[in-house]
Each structure stands twice: as structure tokens, then as C-alpha cells.
Amino acid sequence: MLWSIGKDSTVLLWLARKAFFGHVPFPLVHIDTSYKVPEMITYRDKFALEWNLNLVVGQNEAALKAKETFPDGKIDRIACCKALKANALKHTLSGEWPRKRMNHQTRQLEYDTNTEPYTGVIVGARADEEGSRSKERYFSPRDKQSDWDVGDQPPEFWNQFKTDFAPGTHVRIHPLLDWTELNIWEYIARENIPIISLYFDQGEGKRYRSLGCYPCTTPVESTSTTVQEIVQELKSGKFSNIAERSGRAQDKEDGGGLESLRREGYM
């Protein structure tokens, strides 16, 4: 399961804990671009230890070392997302690039000796986020190159999904497809899920509505300090008509930026 530390994937993680009665019987993969807000890493490690999670962290170490990133001024935003997120994810899942795993004894991340490829990932993507995501399936097979053939996806009948795969297929599962941003916050309120404080106003009249890398994500003007206030804000307040990813700079770079990224494995 992918865990970006954001609200959606944390809700997904919570659903896994509910589904398995307090346990999470699969690894949680976090792709660390190194440009995450530091608080995200603190939060991640705290709950990985507290909830006894099998946390696996992947990174594009080569690109970071060579400073081939947008913040270093070498490439544009889309190319940076591709390198630090899409490629890092692809190669972390395949086991080709080094993976670090949380050692619950030493409480440290250590290089993982297991380099077996993961054959599937559970992802917190939602259909209402932007156009290309609204075409996703709950169970979405990708071929060996992670390619997504939008025009030829398996049928899903009632609650029956495509669960048989030829060897070598990689599958993405999107349990939150039909959830909205408001559903997410209402569920966080209902379950009292501990959510990272970056989503709340810390007294400066600003909060993050969507979390990403700090060079490309800007906070929104909002004085919401609690989950309930955010729910109100989304229901009837200032955000009831503004797209959630409006603070994500990479979405604006070209008309279908995110769609091209998704074909290449971005989530």
C-alpha cells in the first residue's frame, strides 16, 4: 500500500487497520522525494512505530545526488515529478532500486535485503481529484512497463473485480475511487484519525489543502484549526467550489500534465 502521509492515503491505511482488525498485513511504501515538509517524515516514522507498520521507503537517490531536480533548477516541474515520484515509485516497487525498511528494534530505517518485486499496490487515488483519475477502475492492471491502457480496461460488475492476472502483470487497486474530499474529512472526523498538523492553520491564517513537495505546493488561506472546521469549510465555506489541487503547481504546466504522468506511473 502506498502511504504518502497525506490525508487520503492515511485514511486508506486506517481502512486497512479496520479491515484487518488492527493489523496491517502488507508493507506500506513511502516515496521520499527529499523535498517533503520535514514534519511529514516525523509523522510517518512516529505512526509506523506506534501502529507496528511494515514501512518501506524508496527514493531516486541517483537524481538527488546529481541534483537533477526542479528545485536545483536543472529540470522543469513535470520532469521532476517524473524523476522523483513516478520513476522512484516504479523502481522501488520493482525492487531494482534500494529500499529501506523500518526496523522496529532499532527504530531506524535500514536498507532492505528483500529486493523481490511487488506485484501490486493499493493506492488512495480519488476519481474527483482531476479528469484522468475519474477514468480509473478499482482494480487496474498495468502491463510490464506500468502502462495504463485507458481505452481497454476490464469490466467491473457490481462488486466483482478483475482479480485474475497473467504472470508479470502489475495491479493497482483504488479503494477510495468514489470518495470525495469531503467524504475523506468526514471519515477522519468519525474515526478520529490522527492527521498531520500541516492540514490545519497554525496561527498564520494558512493551511495545506493538499500535501506534496514544498517547492511545488502552496498553502491556502484558511483559518481552520480542526477537522470539523475543515468539514464546514468544504461543505458551505470558501472551498466548496474550488478544486483541491489548485495549490499544486505541476498540474498547470500543460493541459494534460497529470495524465501523461499517470500513464508513466504517477499516482
Binding site: 474527483d128 479528469g131 484522468s132 475519474s134 477514468k135 485507458v150 481505452g151 475511487l177 494534460g256 495524465e259
Partner: peptide, 19 residues
């Protein structure tokens, strides 16, 4: 029909969801 290739073909190829 938010997807690029759909607009070029002019037909809906999948079940888009909206609210």
C-alpha cells in the same frame, strides 16, 4: 471528456464519474 485522446476521438471511452 477530460482526457486528451478522448477529445481527439470525440467519444467517451470510459465511465467518467462526476458529482
Amino acid at each position: 471528456d477530460a482526457l486528451k485522446d478522448e477529445q481527439s476521438q470525440g467519444i467517451t471511452i470510459d465511465s467518467a464519474r462526476c458529482f
